[in-house]
Amino acid sequence: MFHWLEQKPFFFAVVLFLTVAFAGFVTIVPDFAKQSQPTVGTKPYTVLELAGRQVYIKDSCNACHSQLIRPFKSETDRYGMYSLSGEYAYDRPFLWGSKRAGPDLMRVGNYRTTDWHENHMMNPSDVVPGTVMPKYPHQFTNMADLATAYANANTQKELFGVPYDTDGMPKLGSWAEAEAQAKEDAKLIASDMKNQSVKDAVANGQVPEIVALIAYLNSLK
């Protein structure tokens, strides 16, 4: 039987594939249903926060920062309550990271403020001497992509049933409504910032990347 198999490339490939695929089906598939349930109080991201999340991904913040607090005292003392599966129910993609060149950011919104982030992103070593983090001045001049953030949110709503526009959840509405709302949210963030060109841009109805990013970071709690 084995001899026959070794000389028949087609059947050989089939058996090989089954051997390889076996583990994936057994381990991953059955747990899908249970895990995607959100924890009580977890809400989907607003359009501005999603735009900030896209900035986070664009500059690969996740290459150096995790968003996963493990259940050890040394981690909960440092970063807060350990992570629960349901807290990630609206994270597409997940951003757990795999390496902490910098600290965990899962609950950074609890202990850092808008002006702290503003100073830190402009020049990290002003705030944390000895840091190895790059400066991100380009986030103060590049504009956030609200339209894509809206498309992102709308896709999640339409396709994956993420409960936007339901009771107690963020409102999405049409693109025009969402854009106006995001710009209102941006003004709130900008009022805590001191960089004049960012303030001017927001007053003119634009949203620099840094504003969206800070909105996202503040939402991490």
Binding site: Q54, A89, P93, F94, D145, A147, T148, T155
Partner: peptide, 18 residues
């Protein structure tokens, strides 16, 4: 699924969450 928002063609979202 962008509605009428002028969104980027390059962006995609994962089918799985968290």
């Amino acid at each position: 699924w962008s509605g009428d928002a002028p969104s980027s063609l390059m962006h995609s979202v994962s089918m799985y969450a968290g």
